[in-house]
Write a protein that binds this DNA or RNA. Structure first.
Lengths: 210, 210
DNA sequence: TCAAGTCTGTAACTTTTGTTACTGCCAGGT
DNA sequence: ACCTGGCAGTAACAAAAGTTACAGACTTGA
């Protein structure tokens, strides 16, 4: 575990901290599509992403979903962190976007390391910062952009996260992530295809140029 | 200054910290409507709210605005804090909702106190936490609610912040805060009035029951 | 008291988004 | 080869939100 940990976090954490993380953390893995953490769960540890990607979703009482943002290697979820320190239930759902490896660090250590390691303190602050700014971006897209622009952004983000111009996804799945209906997504995707920006296939979508 | 500071923060900060804040912080005040911090400003200190209320706005390139949330006595702005620690420009605009008093604390102290005072560390974490959860709520309203529900929430929030059932506000101002048009707001407000929930007057709005 | 500016109400229309319904297509299992 | 279920395309319509235009009311100040 120490090796993978060093690969992903070696350039920000000192030796001693990496050591302690690998001693107290629990290595976990999740298959693509697996729910790593769900709304209402009590949270007693925070994740450090080693490999793969996780998508963070919000849900309302009627069961409508909305994709908030993706996490990648080297990220942690500030919302989870926040829940952790506040000892409250999870406000979000985390689903593995690809097969994923991560370390769960128990809550007790988080506070302790905050006082002992400057690099950890910085990491925590930077996590809050990047998550806040991702939330701001999410708000921007919701408040200022139409569905066609939101869809474009979604496709770009997803291609980036999966490091591929070919996305394995159904229209219905996109509709869930953007909290709209399948018909709307089909309509807009078809428009994008006519504009020569993408190619549509069953369960599959190729990004040409955006 | 120490007196006002103790009134607002005495129950969370220890004596020594209150002392240091009052020594290094700068007491400021802003009139209702005054811009306290604007998008693109460099931030070198963070605010601690003593009295009044501040509204935090987001703006896109076309100049469209959106109200993110309000700050009250005892609050600080985690977005500012985040900018501060990251040494970046402000992503948001802060406008005095009422006449407001606050203390600006220089960036250098923020990190220092984080290591020296547990109460400060908790305060910073709790600020991040409450701001994250307010951002989540903002996202919820944008993603899951129609304009009529958003308007209702806005009126409720504003009544709460101003501790009054009578709001001094024009339809146009509401439209700016919710990033929609004046006509839409007039339409929906009229509907609320017909439902007996509010009373409309020029520059003025009375909340009966929501 | 009159003029100018601001605010609200409303109508008529457009655009965007959401809904319902139906079609054909494809893949996997029997 | 056939059946079944999931997926995508499309039409037709409904609802929500945005736009344009205009009228009347109030407010302020000359």
């Amino acid at each position: 575990m120490l090796q993978e940990l060093t690969d992903a976090y070696g350039f920000i954490f000192e030796e001693k901290l990496l050591q302690e993380i690998s001693e107290t953390g629990v290595l976990k893995s999740a298959r693509e599509g697996e729910i790593i953490m769900d709304i209402g769960n009590y949270i007693t540890s925070m994740p450090l992403l080693l490999e793969g990607a996780i998508k963070i979703l919000r849900e309302d009482k009627e069961g409508n979903e909305l994709l908030l943002y993706f996490l990648e290697r080297g990220d942690t979820c500030a919302l989870t962190l926040s829940c952790c320190l506040g000892q409250t239930k999870s406000e979000i759902r985390a689903v593995a976007e690809k097969d994923t490896q991560y370390i769960m660090v128990p809550i007790a250590k988080i506070e302790e390391w905050t006082t002992r390691f400057k690099s950890w303190r910085n990491f925590v602050f930077e996590s809050y910062q990047s998550r806040l700014s991702e939330m701001l971006e999410t708000i921007d897209t919701l408040a200022f952009m139409n569905m066609d622009q939101r869809l474009l952004r979604y496709i770009q983000d997803k291609a980036k996260i999966n490091q591929s111009q070919e996305l394995q996804v159904t229209h219905q799945q996109i509709a869930y992530d953007l909290n709209t209906s399948r018909v709307v997504i089909s309509r807009l995707l078809k428009k994008l295809e006519l504009e020569g920006k993408i190619l549509l296939q069953r369960n599959h979508l190729v990004v040409y140029d955006l």
